[in-house]
Design a protein around this nucleic acid. Structure first.
Lengths: 178, 178
DNA sequence: ATCAATGCAAATAATTTGCAAAAAG
DNA sequence: CTTTTTGCAAATTATTTGCATTGAT
């Protein structure tokens, strides 16, 4: 996508981009990285961990701990809630999954940071849909601001709560129902 | 501060600004707004609510529910934890205090949104100090990005986790210990 | 064999809530 | 007086943890 746009002479720097879903090979490669991460820490690859990891990297969807438990149990019914909660910190520590808090009473996990380490979220207040996007201009501005204030950015999270313009015009959100 | 900079010909749009603490009169006016908010909802101004509200708008510091309880009890020892937890949603609903989640297991409340509705936070990983700043360029970029993606911004939160450059050079964080 | 990892069930901790008594208007 | 608000203590809920057992290497 980037190559195509560049060949067309489009100025990508000025474009905010909705991020593409990770491809299956990308997800498989990310899973492999996580297995290596476990190996480096001399952690064992149990059948339960394998079920959890397979689940996490089989989707580009956000998920909660409870959803992960449910999905992982479809692959291996012996997976317990405790093991899910013990595995999630390993996933976030590896940097391949990010933990997010959108003000609900549960955490949300995002497996798309491996491919898009600086992406951000717009949450539609009408349909609760979450759109992921990245913007190089935004990254640059954050670096500039932080530098002027005497800091160096290590990570950042921007969440924009928004309404669909469609909703206001037509009275219904085009994203509704997904 | 803004006027001074403008008279000097400084381009404020390009400057990220660390926000100034709210002045005592500003805080008093904000408290008044909240009392009006209670009145509009036909809610009673009890001695406990008065102690809580006096506490909240006597500072520009962030606080937790537990801290608010402790501080409010210094003004009125009859304030209970339940009343604090029942009053916090009123404060956030009024828009004069914002609830924030920085990944800890408790919420943090910020009374500075009345004066600076779009401000953001840089958290120093070395000393945990939180710096509040605002940037019109950032606001403009967020609006532009949202618009291109078909949304209209309603609110936003940007948190930058950063390290002090001072820390890296000198090995100690100049903000440490506050 | 050895030691990490598991499931279970109990523990934690922030926040919420039912209820009878107290207080605001 | 009437209705809201309170404190208390019990409940809730996501997450964490102790421990005896199981399983990976």
């Amino acid at each position: 996508m980037v190559d195509k746009a560049q060949s067309l002479g489009i100025d990508l720097i000025s474009l905010p981009l909705i991020i593409e879903p990770m491809s299956e090979p990308d997800r498989a490669a990310t899973k492999e990285k996580f297995l290596q991460f476990l190996d480096q820490k001399n952690l064992r690859i149990t059948s339960q961990r394998r079920a959890i990891v397979d689940t996490v990297f089989s989707t580009d969807q956000h998920f909660t701990a409870e959803q992960l438990l449910e999905w992982a149990r479809e692959k291996d019914s012996s997976v317990s809630r405790a093991t899910v909660y013990r595995t999630l910190p390993l996933l976030t520590e590896s940097g391949l999954v990010h933990e997010m808090d959108f003000g609900k009473d549960y955490k949300i996990y995002d497996p798309n940071y491996a491919a898009h380490p600086n992406h951000n979220h717009i949450i539609c207040n009408d349909c609760d849909k979450i759109v992921e996007f990245e913007s190089e201009r935004l990254d640059a501005l954050e670096n500039e601001i932080s530098g002027k204030l005497g800091f160096e950015v290590q990570s950042q999270q921007l969440t924009i709560n928004a309404s669909c313009e469609e909703m206001k015009r037509v009275g219904a959100c085009k994203n509704k129902g997904e």
